[in-house]
Design a protein around this nucleic acid. Structure first.
Length: 495
RNA sequence: GCCCCCAUCGUCUAGUGGCCCAGGACGUGGCCCUCUCAAGGCCAAAACAGGGGUUCGAAUCCCCUUAGGGGCACCA
């Protein structure tokens, strides 16, 4: 039953199109992808669309788009094809049916026509009498034929003995067969359950290693028994640790959308990370570091460098929570590493979405100023959107008044600044600073007071990129207009 | 209830019997730098869940307890 070590590495990510790509799913995909790349193997995408009830039409597209966004491209699967297709389980029904029949014929499975009502009653009884819930094997020895009409096919689990799974991360895990269920393999709609489909597909797609979330551990012995019944070699298997909800209750996968946990925004779907302005390379770096460590005490590493180091033997079996604060930091680090060109291109759509008319020259000059001040792409809009605005308006002119100053003094300071700045022949930051500092002394103000008032006048914000560089980008005329307007308004209202 | 996984700072982790009175990172606090905010630099607080073994020696191996998690579907 153990796989031959020399078997070519072929791994798969097999999502079900019942929802958008989840961050936990992305992590599973990432580890599969890393494993494949490490071993020069093949990474396969397989769509497990056998649940018609929960099918979400645009979820497959979302899954594919976001895998690509993360750079987790597949070598075989939808859109790219391959020699082991089709890669949608809904197109492989005949195969599953054929092998389900084979199991029945060979005494490894049986037909069952127990009704949903009977199963429901059974479960209620078992709960009432505090018994372990599960199918009572009513039809197991009835040898029902195909003529019974609507029915399912159940696996005939051996009643004694043990099944041992050799998990690559956890070592051997044993189960008493008597504790295992006669699970449904083929549903009454003729489609397979996960258990049958994944075994048949993994076999015919020549999957060498199964890397999946650890919620599958409990059904692994069933899968092992299926391989044994078919007489097929079982792939090597490893169960990846789950990602837990930061709120401390349950696994994250139970929530399917972003939610608020205290002061922290918890993002769940990959599309939410994308929209929130995280860089895919930062997300990948972050995800790689949950359950696995690069080594050498390094926290920041490009994916290309983690490939040769990746090893299942170093995967931590314990589940963990997503460290969101670390993503914020990592994202900031990655943004600092990007070229001006690159960051400008990435930040541009966010300005546009905010309805701002982006000027390329200004944007390129702005990027170095905001690069180390933003954590996510849309932060740039909040920090420096005023650069692309014709006029800015202050909610309350009182905001111009800095600590230790009054309205009259502020008006005077602004007018003095206006005069100083208006007198400059060149409006570069370097040209602005010395006379403005002299002005501080002349007015008896601290730099923070004068510059603060000018900052608010020019940007309508208390916080901005460095003042002189910012004014240089905005331009002399616009700055002067804004300073005068601010002084006028303050004087009018509080003078 | 039954079966299974799992357990190092608040969080992500390093540690595969002596190099560990436990290292890194995020976050937190302090200081420095400073036109705001950041970034950066320096410093600090902060963990081997508990109890038994094994061993000359245990964070590392074994057992029990406890905590957390998963599963017990005609969902994946």
């Amino acid at each position: 039953m153990s796989a031959s070590p020399e078997r070519p590495v072929r791994v798969r990510f097999a999502p079900s199109p019942t929802g958008y790509l989840h961050i936990g799913g992305a992590r599973t995909a990432l580890f599969n992808w890393l494993f494949a790349r490490k071993h020069g193997g093949t990474f396969i995408l397989r769509v497990e669309d056998t649940d018609q009830k929960r099918y979400v039409p645009d979820s497959e597209q979302d899954i594919k788009d976001n895998l690509r966004w993360l750079g987790l491209t597949w070598d075989e699967g939808p859109d790219v094809g391959g020699a082991h297709g089709p890669y949608h389980q809904s197109q492989r029904s005949d195969l599953y049916r054929q092998w389900a029949d084979w199991l029945v014929e060979h005494g490894y499975a049986y037909r069952c026509n127990c009704t949903a009502e009977r199963l429901e009653d059974l479960r209620k009884q078992q709960e009432a009498s505090k018994q372990t819930p599960g199918y009572d094997r009513h039809c197991r020895d009835l040898h029902l034929g195909a003529e019974i009409g609507e029915h399912v096919v159940r696996f005939q689990m051996p009643l004694d003995g043990e099944t041992t799974i050799n998990d690559l991360i956890r070592g051997p895990i044993s189960f008493r067969n008597a504790d295992l269920q006669d699970l449904v393999l083929l549903k009454s709609d003729g489609l397979p359950t996960y258990h049958l489909a994944n075994v048949v597909d993994d076999h015919f797609m020549e999957i060498s290693h199964i890397l999946r979330a650890d919620e599958w551990i409990a059904t692994a012995p069933l899968h092992a028994q299926l391989y044994a019944a078919f007489g097929w070699e079982m792939p090597q298997i490893a169960h990846l640790p789950v990602i837990l909800s930061p709120s401390g209750k349950g696994k994250l996968s139970k929530r399917d959308q972003a939610f608020q946990d205290g002061t922290m925004k918890v993002l769940v779907q990959v599309r939410e990370y994308r929209r929130a302005g995280y860089l895919p390379e930062a997300v990948v770096n972050w995800l790689t570091n949950i359950g696995w460590a690069f080594g050498d005490d390094r926290e920041i590493f490009p994916v290309a460098e983690s490939i040769p180091r990746f090893d299942l033997a170093n995967v931590n079996p314990a589940g963990g929570k997503l460290p969101f604060e670390k993503l914020e930091w990592l994202n900031g680090q990655y943004m600092q590493m990007l070229s001006v060109e690159d960051l400008a291109a990435r930040v541009r759509p966010f300005f546009e979405q905010a309805g701002l008319a982006v000027d390329d020259d200004r944007l390129r000059r702005l990027v170095p100023l905001i690069r180390e001040r933003i954590k996510t792409l849309p932060d740039a809009v909040e920090m420096a959107g005023f650069v692309f605005l014709e006029t800015v308006t202050l909610e309350d002119p009182k905001q111009l008044v800095q600590k230790g100053m009054d309205a009259a003094g502020t008006v005077a300071a602004l007018r003095a600044a206006h005069e100083t700045l208006a007198g400059l022949a060149a409006f570069s930051a370097a040209a602005q600073e010395p006379p403005m500092r002299q002005l501080c002394e002349a007015l008896g103000l601290k730099p923070g007071q004068l510059f603060g008032a000018v900052r608010v006048a020019v940007t309508a914000q208390q916080v901005s990129p460095p003042l002189f560089e910012t004014m240089e980008i905005i331009g002399q005329a616009t700055c002067l207009t804004r300073i005068r307007a601010a002084a006028d308004r303050l004087e009018q209202l509080y003078g």
